[in-house]
Amino acid sequence: MSIKEILRMVLVLTLVTGIWGGLLSLVKMATQDQIEYQRIKNVKAPALEKALTVEYTNDPVKERKKIRVGTDEAGNPIIRNVFIAKQNGRVVAVALEGYGSGYGGDMGVMVAIKPESNKVDGIAVTTHAETPGVGTKAMKSEAFMGQFSGKNISASFAPGGGIDAHSGATYTSEGIMQGVERATKIFSRNREKIL
């Protein structure tokens, strides 16, 4: 194999990967926002619709805001999405996720808050790894999940506070309470940024 041949091979491979890599990153950039929208729409929207009981006319997924809620161990900022529900241009509710630890690990809870009255509008579980038929009983129970609605956000939602756990599903109930507690606190701290 001559040097010329090897050089040609290297050149061709570099060119091919370079051109395609550039093209791919272009496609990636062009589709990035759309992909993020679709992901949120398909993963979070069902819970979002359940948590929002007020009437609204916009697409809260489209009108979402990103807020910085803190930093992780490595010092990178933690960014959360806040979904804004509007009726005829007026903000009627905002929804954001808080995480608590249930029986099977972390669970996400979507909490909708009415900023005018500072009351919880509704909550719904987004992601969880609870035992089917045991822990899931709590998140399906109207009596348990309904307790949060109408409570002022300054109240304590943490376990041991004013919320009764669903019997037989204590860990899951406490996970949900923790999630709501954290979400409401994030809202209170970042109220100006969100609205």
């Binding site: 496609v27 990636k28 589709t31 759309q34 992909i35 679709q38 992901r39 729409k41 398909n42």
Partner: peptide, 8 residues
């Protein structure tokens, strides 16, 4: 990428 963006 296209499918994820437009046919989720």
């Amino acid at each position: 990428l296209m499918m994820e963006a437009y046919f989720y």
